[in-house]
């Protein structure tokens, strides 16, 4: 289908984008790579009156070593992240999860910031960032603020970003010695995950993020607690679905998703070396 008509604004700077958002309020949407937004607009599930294009803000395209963490510009494309030596060596889980997003054409356009700002529980990237305990940086009329990834996803396709805020950076703690695994179950190559699991084991610390197990990207708190208490992979995976409000749709019932979560978390823990 053809999207509904809109006015197009190209922002030449982050401040220009923020000013456009402030002027047009919830009538405006930011577009970066557009690979979440354009499909929604084509189905007319989204009908913004103004589209503010931030795709040319090249100063938000980078992967930098910032000491304790990697700083990744919000407009960095998936493809640039998956082949980044820094990402592969310091936060390998993110490279692996990114590689499973869509296909190479999609990853040539889609950005890490867009994938997070869309707030989709079915997206692979948020689960990896939950496991890695990332921090998101946003900029608005009142300046910058940091948002912990656990506070970022607030509801179905909703985030903690204010309507006048622009996501600018993702800070991912460096874990060069961690072991990790990204598990994804889908019916066809390039499909969204029916369920996915991001596993990070870094010494005594475990991070487990789940894809498509709730209305928002989810941390498997019960699994992390079980691992901290010394549980083995099978016992920890047993509680993978605990506390989640699991969706049911044409791809899978909630019971089947719960089963998949237990299997994928166990496989992921074993692949990451947890007995």
């Amino acid at each position: 289908m053809i999207p509904a008509a809109f006015d197009y604004i190209r922002a030449a700077s982050a401040d220009e984008a923020i000013a456009a958002l402030a002027e047009h309020g919830d009538e405006a949407k930011l577009i970066a790579g557009g690979h979440s937004l354009i499909p929604l607009m084509r189905f007319r599930l989204a009908t913004p009156s103004y589209l503010v294009d931030i795709g040319r803000l090249d100063d938000l395209t980078y992967v930098r070593d910032a000491g304790e963490h990697l700083a990744i510009g919000a407009l960095t494309r998936h493809r640039d992240i998956e082949v980044s030596d820094l990402v592969m060596s310091q936060t390998g889980l993110l490279a692996e999860a990114t590689r499973s997003v869509g296909d190479i054409q999609v990853r040539h356009r889609g950005t890490i910031g867009g994938a997070i700002a869309h707030g989709d529980a079915a997206s692979d990237i948020p689960a990896a960032l939950l496991a890695l305990r990332a921090t998101v940086v946003s900029k608005g009329p009142n300046g910058e603020r940091e948002i912990a990834i656990d506070d970022f996803f607030s509801g179905f396709l909703e985030t903690a970003l204010d309507e006048t805020e622009l996501l600018t950076e993702i800070r991912v703690p460096k874990v060069p010695d961690a072991r990790w695994s990204f598990q994804k179950f889908n019916r066809r190559a390039q499909d969204w995950a029916i369920v996915g699991a991001s596993i990070l084991l870094d010494g005594d610390r475990a991070g487990v993020g789940l894809v498509n197990m709730d209305s928002v990207p989810t941390r498997a708190n019960a699994v992390e607690a079980a691992l901290a208490g010394g549980a083995d992979a099978a016992a920890a995976a047993d509680v993978a679905a605990e506390g989640a409000d699991v969706p049911s749709d044409l791809n899978a019932s909630s019971e089947y998703r719960e089963h998949l979560a237990r299997v994928l978390v166990r496989r992921g823990l074993e692949a990451a070396g947890r007995a």
């Binding site: 197009y8 190209r10 577009i31 557009g34 690979h35 354009i38 499909p39 589209l51 294009d53 795709g55 493809r79 190479i104 054409q105 999609v106 040539h108 356009r109």
Partner: peptide, 19 residues
């Protein structure tokens, strides 16, 4: 609908000409 945009493959059904 795959074409090259500055030499890289993209799906042209999911890109606005304006972009």
């Amino acid at each position: 609908c795959t074409v090259h945009l500055d030499g890289e493959s993209v799906k042209s059904c999911t890109v606005f000409a304006a972009q």
